[in-house]
Nucleic acid binder design. Structure first.
Length: 420
RNA sequence: GGCGGGUUACCCGAGUGGCCAAAGGGGGCUGACUGUAAAUCAGCUGGCAACGCCUACGGGGGUUCGAAUCCCUCACCCGCCA
């Protein structure tokens, strides 16, 4: 890996930079201290944030020093979204989210060694600042014209909902962060998603004005899907890194279901596989798409990265058992138990209405939806299609006298546990 | 502060007294075809103890046998004027 920037470009991770050649020179000359921020707007990071973390990790592997900023301050204000004003979250909630997010980032970066990462929180320098200091020392450097011209701000001003002063001010806070990290740790590169470009520039310009220093910014592209739909969402919602919010099984399944057209791009972005390995997998998709070798590699790698190799092995085995060709009754008890442990579960027993059980496990959202699914031929028990809306669970349906696997459509699964 | 326009289901958007659980589109779900993929075609898409009942057209109140539709009021958004 001679040139990290080449590496990032090859992986499709560079959308915009302040000055590519200046950045390339800086990254080639000496270890650069870089920063990337994560705002606590939810109790967990999601796979969109993973793009940022892994980009930072790649830079770290090339010898550069990351500062992972968790926005205890910016999270209290809210980055303006394209559509609609955010609801302010209570400070204690944000503080809790800060902790959770820190713990998610920690295992993904290296906090020891010569390029050790450091965790920072912008609440530390933002909270003690008075309104007067803010307006005199920082506000004076900001031109309203520039601020109003920012994409998101302009869009919001033209929207029906407008924008509050609070959200409008967000870009200044983020600019202050970069300045502060530049002063404290010599940060000279900020990375982020392309939607953050304006916010990154805010800091670059502030540093230029206050410190007469030229620093860099680099954004990663918005991850897109070949079919044009939004990346990172499923019918169930966002794919979170927190195993409580998105089970490792569901996480693995998400990646396994990547489109052929998207999978190579995802391998570049979300795994540490080499160019050769990815080229190999790309060929495999072309030659034997049904084998989905690339999807399996992708799903395994990302799951192992986020949830650990042990968890990844478990969900691979569970997926094999549940989607295997054989009769579920033929699986031995330990295999069944392990597979079933990965699925959403509801208690039930022989005699219960299947429609009620489908609703109870969350495979469908309501009993009416369960009846609909059965009527449409989209519901099965242990991979056997059911057709009678009024059918009940039978004792013979229970695998090893205990479990019944409910399925809606091809890949939405849950289990009924009749206990022991 | 004044005047005008607006707020409808997951989203966009029709609907100006009963035929409205609410057109149409998007999205989503299911089926067929497949590979737990994409594309395509078809059906479905508020809930429940279900020939009925409940919830739902920004919040609250009213008129009426009957309201998403009319009136009052509150909130928020947009525009013009000050």
């Amino acid at each position: 890996m001679s040139d990290v920037l080449d590496e990032l470009q090859w992986r499709g991770l560079v959308a915009q930079t302040t000055d590519v050649e200046a950045l390339r020179a800086a990254l080639g000359a000496a270890p650069v201290t870089l920063y990337c921020g994560f705002d606590p707007t939810a109790p967990s990071l999601h796979i969109g944030n993973l793009v940022q973390i892994l980009t930072v990790r790649r830079l770290q592997l090339a010898g550069h020093k990351p500062l992972a900023l968790v926005g205890g301050a910016t999270g209290l204000i809210g980055d303006p979204k394209m559509v609609g004003e955010r609801t302010l979250n209570p400070p204690d909630v944000v503080a809790d989210w800060v902790d959770r997010i820190r713990r998610q980032i920690e295992p993904l970066l290296d906090f020891d060694g010569p390029a050790a990462a450091r965790m920072v929180n912008n609440l530390e320098w933002t909270a003690p600042m008075s309104a007067i200091d803010f307006l005199r020392d920082v506000g004076k450097h900001y031109r309203l014209g520039t601020m109003l011209a920012k994409d998101t701000v302009a869009r919001r001003l033209n929207s029906e909902q407008g924008i509050s002063f609070t959200e409008f001010s967000y870009q200044i806070l983020q600019g202050m962060d970069y300045l502060e990290l530049h002063r404290r740790y010599g940060a000279s590169l900020q990375t982020g998603g392309n939607d953050q470009w304006g916010n990154l520039l805010s800091g670059v310009e502030l540093i230029r004005k206050v410190e007469q220093a030229s620093v860099h910014a680099l954004t990663t592209p918005l991850i897109t899907k070949a079919d044009g739909t939004k990346f990172g969402k499923t019918e169930t919602g966002t794919i979170w890194l927190d195993p409580e919010l998105t089970s490792p099984y569901a996480f693995y399944q998400f990646w396994l279901n990547a489109d052929d057209a998207d999978v190579t791009g995802y391998l570049k972005i979300f795994t540490f596989r080499t160019r050769d390995e990815i080229g190999e997998l790309e060929r495999a998709v072309e030659e034997r798409p049904a084998a989905r070798a690339a999807q399996r590699a992708l799903a395994y790698d990302v799951t192992a990265l986020v949830h650990g190799a042990a968890a990844a092995d478990k969900v691979v085995a569970a997926s094999a058992a549940l989607f295997g060709r054989g009769d579920l009754h033929d699986l031995d008890e330990p295999t069944t138990a392990a597979a079933v442990a990965e699925l959403p579960t509801a208690a039930g027993s022989a005699g219960d209405l299947l429609a009620d059980l489908f609703a109870a496990t969350g495979v469908v959202t309501s009993k009416a939806a369960a009846r609909r699914a059965i009527a449409e031929g989209g519901a099965s028990v242990n991979n056997v299609k059911i057709t009678d809306e009024a059918a009940a669970l039978e004792a013979g349906d229970l695998l090893h006298g205990r479990w019944a696997v409910l399925r809606r459509g091809k890949r939405t699964l849950a289990v009924v546990d009749a206990g022991r």
